[in-house]
Simulated scan of single mutants.
Amino acid sequence: MPVSGPVHEALAALPLVDHHCHGAVTADLGADAFKSLITEGAAWPGISPFDSPVGVAVRRHCAPVLDLPRHAAPADYLARRRALGWREVNRRFLAASATEVFCVDTGYAPQPVTSPAELAVAAGAAACEVVRLEQLAEAVAAGGVKANGYASAFRTAAETAVRRAGVVAVKSVAAYRTGFALDPARPTDTEVTAAAARWLTHGGRLTDPVLVRHLLWTAVDLGLPLQLHTGFGDADVRLHRADPALLTDWLHLTAGTVPVVLLHCWPYHRQAAFLATVFEQVYLDVGLALHYTGPARCRAVLEEALEIAPFRKLLYSSDAFGVAEFHHLGALSFRQGLAALLQSRVDADELTLSDALRIASWTGRDNARRLYGPLVSEPSRPSGGRPTRKV
């Protein structure tokens, strides 16, 4: 049964800031396409993603949003989704998340998804943009730049991108490309030019360690919060190289510069919590793990993240991509998991109720407002949106 009590009521009423997510698909999905989007693995023959913790959570917690009974059969769920159409499905789940601001990573779109503005209109909320730096670097390389001009061209492209209206942060997927066991020092111009020459000769994705280091140091120079994917992801990531503790030396060198936000983190959320405890500039979330563990287990992940982390350092994100179910399920899991955690500490006299309510507000909204500034703390909704709830 869901937890009840004043902390649960406060979190249920709190408009969230989803500080890292992606767009929702703008097409009606067939069964195979939907199944592929609710797993970080694959829809293997004989093994349905519906027969997993996230699949069960979708049937339990998302089916009622589509006017279906809890635990609806997968075939009934998919049929109802098709009958409503993608616009209505997106509208229902995005509105059900009760999110007031979405910070949208626009750098990953293997299929058409909503823009930040379209996501905002569907949700009746506001949306900001997170710029993915690897995508910019690859666009610069594809544009025909010479090796000795790469560093300047990338910096110019990045500076131009972050000046776009609505941009609040930048992001790197270095965890996927090289992992974090990198030389922490800023590379020299000579090193960058030589690495660019090697890359531009062969093309493809940015995977050169020198150029990834250059990208991270350019991010520091840009002055905006830097989001870093860590931990759990799809099969493209080498998980042992995505441990944020490997960034320790780089974090020493970048102390006093920009906020560094460690995204998702599981199973390294305890390492991320340590880093947030000892480095002023480090923050964390457990975003992707929320909907993959679901309300049944997300409390355990949140408890481990909050064993030592300062309460002003944990942020909420859904990391939802593709299916709008995940925007809703991430929010629901966060609210229920954190409410159960905090209420149990109040009941055990480990927290006062006023402390618990402050922590709930900080992690669900106010930490992100403080970190990302006026575009998040004073959001304006797009034309056609609906007012968000205020508390």
Rank of each mutant, 00 (worst) to 15 (best):
P225I: 14
H328F: 15
W362R: 11
V173F: 08
S48I: 09
G107W: 05
S4A: 14
G46N: 03
R241N: 09
T160C: 06
P387V: 08
N148L: 06
G385I: 07
V173I: 15
L14W: 05
A12P: 03
A24E: 00
R270Y: 04
G223E: 13
A127E: 12
V210F: 12
L66G: 00
E9V: 10
S377L: 09
L94P: 01
R312K: 05
V56E: 15
P259Y: 13
R186I: 02
R370C: 12
G5D: 09
V54K: 14
A348E: 06
G41M: 01
A13I: 06
V237H: 08
A276Q: 00
P382Y: 10
R163C: 04
V130T: 15
L206Y: 08
R205Q: 05
E191F: 00
P110K: 12
L133Y: 02
A309Q: 07
T254E: 07
L247D: 08
F102K: 05
A169V: 04
E138N: 01
S152Y: 01
T207Y: 01
L371W: 01
Q271Y: 07
M1W: 10
C265S: 14
A276H: 00
W266D: 13
G204W: 04
A57M: 10
V323S: 07
R163F: 00
L247Y: 10
T277S: 13
C21Y: 02
G373T: 11
G30S: 05
R177I: 03
E40C: 06
L329Q: 05
C128H: 00
S380D: 15
L84D: 04
P374N: 07
G143P: 09
E129L: 04
L215Y: 06
R70P: 03
S333W: 01
Q227D: 06
A137L: 15
V258Y: 10
L251E: 05
L215S: 11
A296W: 05
G30D: 13
E350N: 13
L371M: 03
V145P: 02
R60S: 03
A339P: 08
H61G: 04
W44G: 03
A109N: 11
P187T: 12
L200D: 10
W86T: 02
P374R: 12
A309Y: 06
A181G: 07
L182T: 06
A141C: 08
H328C: 08
R81D: 02
R198L: 15
V17I: 11
H214C: 08
Y176D: 01
R132I: 00
E303V: 06
C21G: 03
